[in-house]
Computed example of a mutant assay.
Amino acid sequence: MVHKQSLAQLLDEGRRKIQVTDEELTEAKRRRTLLAASVRRAFPGSTTYFNGSVAHGDANTPLTDVDLGTVLTKKDAEPYGPGKKSALTLMEIARDAIHEDLDDEFPKLTIEVEGRRRAVLVRFGDPVTPGQADFTADVMTAIPHPSGRGLYIPNTKIATQWDRADPITHTRMVLQAIEETKVVFARTVRLLKHWNGTHSKPMCSWNIKALSLNCLDEPMPLINALRVFFTYAADEIGKGPTPDPAGVAGPIPLNMPRPEVHNRLCTARKYIDLAIEHEKNGRPGLAQHALHQVLPELVAKPDATEEEADRLGQAARAGAPATSGLGLVTGVVTPTRTRAWGE
Rank of each mutant, 00 (worst) to 15 (best):
R311C: 14
Q19I: 01
I276C: 10
N196R: 00
F106D: 04
H3S: 14
P202N: 05
R95Y: 03
I276Q: 10
A249V: 00
H170S: 00
L35Y: 02
N155T: 10
R317I: 15
T70I: 12
V113G: 04
Y232K: 09
W341N: 12
A59V: 13
D96E: 14
P241A: 15
E92F: 05
P44R: 11
L254W: 02
A316N: 10
T21F: 00
K157M: 07
A233P: 08
H199V: 07
E343M: 15
N255C: 11
D303P: 07
P44H: 13
E100R: 07
L191K: 08
T156F: 07
T129G: 10
Q161C: 05
N51Y: 11
L274G: 06
T169I: 12
L312M: 15
R227M: 15
Q9R: 12
R172E: 15
L295M: 03
E13V: 12
Q314T: 05
C204K: 10
D134E: 11
A246R: 00
L68F: 02
N281R: 12
K17P: 04
L151K: 00
R116K: 03
T136E: 12
A316R: 13
A28S: 13
I272L: 04
G313F: 06
V120I: 06
A177K: 09
E297R: 06
F106P: 01
R258Y: 00
A287K: 05
K270D: 13
I252K: 01
W162Y: 01
M140V: 05
D138Y: 13
R15V: 14
L328K: 12
T305D: 12
E236Q: 07
D126F: 10
R15M: 11
D101R: 15
L63Q: 03
L63Y: 00
V122W: 09
A318I: 01
S200E: 09
P251W: 02
T198M: 11
E260R: 14
A249M: 01
P44L: 11
R337T: 14
L298P: 04
K4E: 15
G319K: 05
T231Y: 00
H199P: 01
A320I: 08
L191S: 00
E112S: 11
D138R: 09
C266A: 09
G331N: 14
T26D: 05
A142H: 03
R40L: 00
S38C: 10
T169V: 12
E260L: 15
T33D: 12
R149P: 06
A322V: 12
A186D: 06
A77K: 04
A37V: 13
L192E: 07
A322M: 09
D126G: 05
P296N: 13
D65R: 02
E27C: 00
L222R: 14
T323R: 13
L326T: 01
L34N: 05
S147R: 10
R227F: 14
